[in-house]
Computed example of a mutant assay.
Amino acid sequence: MIIEITNYYALPGQADAVLAQRRRASEIRARLGLPAGRIFKKIEGTGPDVRWECVFDSRSDYERDLTARGASEEFTRARQDMHTLLERFERHLQQEAP
């Protein structure tokens, strides 16, 4: 199992816009036949304002997902729009430790 985690650190005053944009990106994923993933919003403490996670059965499933979203002009535009709202972005790929 592979988990992709993306962390979104909003520019000041943009946290709600970041959340809305992440929801749009997840809707695009669903239209592409990809899993929408799960979206989390910070309620307190330090860390990202918005976090997205998606689980893949294998590394090859993850690679196919990357290819599909990379080929989508709509998803590419959504990604570009998101980056106008961010102070910082992180992507992490993890797997369960045996």
Rank of each mutant, 00 (worst) to 15 (best):
R23K: 14
R51V: 10
F89S: 00
Q95D: 10
A25W: 03
G70H: 06
T6M: 13
T6R: 05
E74M: 06
T46P: 07
H83N: 11
Y9F: 14
V18N: 00
D61T: 09
L93T: 15
G70T: 05
E4T: 05
G45R: 01
V18Y: 02
A36R: 14
I43S: 03
E73Y: 09
L66F: 08
G37T: 01
R29C: 13
V50Y: 01
H83Y: 12
L93W: 12
Y9T: 01
T76C: 09
S58L: 12
Q14M: 15
R22T: 14
Q14W: 04
E27I: 06
T6W: 03
Y62L: 07
G47E: 04
I28T: 05
Q94L: 15
G13L: 06
L66E: 14
T46A: 09
Q95F: 15
A30P: 00
L86N: 02
S26I: 05
R91C: 02
Y8E: 01
P12E: 04
G45D: 04
R77A: 14
E90C: 06
Q21H: 05
G13M: 04
T76N: 12
W52H: 11
I28D: 01
R88F: 00
R29S: 06
K42Q: 13
Y9V: 03
Y9L: 00
A97S: 11
G70N: 11
S26P: 04
L85T: 03
I39E: 02
G70S: 07
F40T: 03
A71V: 11
R51A: 06
D61N: 11
R64F: 09
L93M: 13
Q95W: 12
G33V: 03
Y8Q: 02
A25G: 15
R91W: 01
P98I: 13
I3Q: 10
E53G: 08
A17T: 09
S72A: 11
D65E: 07
Y9N: 04
E4N: 07
T84P: 11
L85C: 03
W52Q: 06
R38C: 12
I28P: 00
T6P: 04
T76W: 08
E63C: 09
Q14G: 04
R88M: 05
R59S: 11
P12Y: 04
M82H: 01
M1W: 10
T84D: 09
E53H: 05
H83S: 10
F40C: 03
P12S: 12
D61S: 15
L11K: 09
L93Q: 15
P98G: 12
Q80F: 09
Q95M: 12
R64P: 08
I43P: 03
L32V: 13
A17M: 05
R29Y: 07
E27F: 02
E90G: 00
L34S: 03
I28G: 04
A15W: 02
R69T: 05
G47Q: 03
I5R: 15
K41C: 11
A30R: 12
